[in-house]
Design a protein around this nucleic acid. Structure first.
Length: 560
RNA sequence: UGACCUAUGGUGUAAUGGUAACACAACUGAUUUUGGUUCAGUCGUUUAUGGUUCGAAUCCAUAUAGGUCAACCA
């Protein structure tokens, strides 16, 4: 019985366990987390994991999550990114309690630095960055202090004030914590706290010319906001010692840092630097290129927010390095889209069919919008003498398990009639130009009295009413699972066929009414959405993901 | 010749000293007016070696492998 109860519950991840303990022990009355992006790039699927984690935790346990921009480096940060990040978080379906900026705390952080100086725990160093690096030692050899570490509190106070006042040039002086130059943790070897940058800041303008480093800003900001659980990725593990040191020495609210492993995914790259290169070198059309692992790219490609959330929740988090198969992400989109996508018929590569015994008129046939949705309703689709089917849905000499059209064989046209192939017409090169078929009038969909059972059902469009559309078929951006770990430049592994454009596909007329919010399943082909490049008289669809395809063509490779 | 983090099916994540499990993938079969969906089933897992224990994926030791740290980035 105990086992049955256990099965019902989803097991807790390590952060949920910590939180439940903290709540139970009374250490925290409510949970406060933050999502702390640096506004210097666009959010990607890895950030989505962090967003879902941070917001999900406070939603589950009560409390709230702040959106805090970690904007302590004015030279790389821009307002453009702030807006895109807010837009992406909102689109994902989360609401932050407060919109905050580390730059909001520049005054307080300055005061904290002064406090450290007064306690003899920080000093102004005139060394160059090269000198500081050299004095730092190596992981296996301790570093050593220089003469600047001996400066008096008064002198440090004066110099730091002068740094703030703009008396010195960039790089001339820095403020360092006075901790331990022999620490086995390199981060603790008198880390830099403040540096001089005469640069325009996207929010504070030119008020400041000194800016705090990450370690002087992040934990302190957490503390100011009473963040209870400060969740970050594994590369910050060594920083935790310094994070705790600052909190202890400054005697401020004890936020605690916890680390989880960042999310990696096959056939893509996730680092901002690499993503920026792809955009900068024009390997993709922009941050929102549907092949990008960015939130905005995935959104344009047709991914739903719900599917991304589901992906993040069900893949889970832990502390070990991971490489999630992109197929898992695709599974969650298909799962969501299958429930809500409107079924439509589109011919990618047309083959003309003449129904020789069908009169010269148009018959409108109802077809369900979504077999998974009982309330989905139907639409009318035109049927006529001249139709298009997919070229690869016909084979002159069919292989054994070919269910589709072939000479003398019967197939059902989806929502219409059963047809038989009678004659195949070819041009001088032997290419099939046209196939003549006859239909079985009693086999009309929904009122079939023919009694004929066919193995295959094809999608089709009526030529006179067909509307042209451009299709953009996306494939993985890279040819290898982990481009970052391959020899040479990761860009050498870009998949040259990651975008296949079909200039003119033929769509059923209902697609003329497509709007951006619509999600479609082009029957037997895949899930599609309208691209924002579309215009009044030009429809462009992005393939979000193909349908799962268990059909293996025996001879010719096929089915894009 | 350092410190820290991590090792569970092909992938991701559980099992919190008591029968190694879930999802994806793969493979069978059934259903199907989408070779989709759905349903049923199959496949396959504790890095190694010692130790503690009635009992170890779990605790301990050693080894091995992978990752992180020597930015005036975050």
């Amino acid at each position: 019985m105990k086992e049955e109860i256990k099965k019902e519950e989803r097991s807790l991840n390590f952060l949920e366990e910590i939180i439940e303990q903290d709540l139970k022990s009374g250490k925290n009355k409510q949970i406060v987390t933050r999502f702390p992006p640096e506004p210097n790039g666009y959010l990607h699927i890895g950030h989505a994991t962090s967003i879902c984690l941070n917001f999900g935790l406070t939603k589950k346990y009560g409390g709230y999550t702040n959106l805090r921009f970690d904007d302590t480096n004015p030279v790389t940060e821009e307002t453009e990114y702030v807006e895109s990040i807010k837009d992406d978080v909102r689109w994902l379906g989360f609401e932050w309690k407060h919109e905050l900026y580390a730059s909001d705390y520049f005054g307080k952080l300055y005061e904290m630095a002064v406090t450290l100086i007064q306690k003899g725990l920080a000093y102004v160093d005139d060394s160059s960055s090269e000198e500081i690096a050299a004095q730092k030692g190596t992981p296996t050899h301790p570093g050593h202090r220089n003469k600047y570490a001996e400066r008096s509190v008064e002198e440090n106070l004066r110099l730091f004030a002068e740094m703030k006042a703009g008396k010195y040039t960039d790089g001339e002086k820095v403020l360092r914590a006075k901790i331990d130059m022999a620490s086995p943790n390199m981060i603790m070897r008198d880390p830099l706290l403040y540096r001089i940058k005469h640069a325009h800041h996207h929010r504070t303008g030119s008020i400041w010319c000194i800016y705090p480093m990450y370690d002087m800003a992040h934990g302190q900001s957490d503390s100011i906001e009473n963040i209870t659980h400060s969740i970050c990725t594994l590369e910050f593990v060594p920083h935790r010692e310094l994070y705790d040191w600052c909190i202890e020495k400054l005697d401020i609210f004890p936020s605690r840092q916890y680390e989880f492993a960042r999310r990696n995914m096959t056939y893509t790259v996730m680092s901002k630097r690499k993503l920026l290169q792809l955009v900068g070198d024009r390997h993709v059309t922009g941050w929102d290129d549907p092949r990008m692992p960015t939130i905005t790219g995935m959104r344009r490609r047709g991914y739903t927010a719900a599917s991304i959330r589901e992906f993040c929740d069900r893949v889970g988090i832990a502390k070990r390095e991971n490489m999630v198969d992109v197929g898992l992400l695709e599974f969650f989109v298909r799962e969501d889209l299958n429930k809500l996508a409107l079924r439509r018929m589109v011919i990618f590569d047309p083959l003309k069919i003449i129904i020789t015994n069908f009169p010269d008129r148009t018959e409108w046939l109802p077809s369900e919008n979504n077999p998974e949705d009982p309330n989905g309703g139907t639409r009318e689709i035109p049927f006529s003498r001249e139709l298009y089917i997919e070229r690869d849905d016909f084979m002159e000499i069919p292989s054994k398990k070919y269910f589709r059209l072939a000479p003398g064989k019967m197939v059902r046209l989806k929502s219409a009639y059963i047809i038989t192939c009678d004659v195949v017409l070819k041009d001088n090169d032997g290419k099939i130009t046209e196939v003549h078929c006859s239909y079985i009038p009693e086999s009309r969909s929904g009122q079939d009295e023919s009694g004929i059972q066919v193995k295959g059902t094809l999608h089709w469009v009526s030529i006179p009413q067909a509307i042209p559309a451009e299709l953009r078929l996306y494939d993985r951006l890279f040819k290898v699972e982990d481009p970052g770990s391959e020899a040479g430049d990761f860009k050498d592994y870009i998949n040259p066929d990651s975008l296949q454009v079909i200039r003119t596909a033929w769509a059923e007329p209902a697609l003329q009414q497509a709007v951006f919010e619509d999600r479609f399943q082009f029957i037997r082909k895949g899930y599609f959405c309208l691209d924002r490049d579309s215009s009044e008289n030009r429809l462009i669809f992005n393939r979000t993901v193909g349908l799962k395809d268990s059909w293996k063509a025996p001879i010719n490779k096929e089915n894009g």
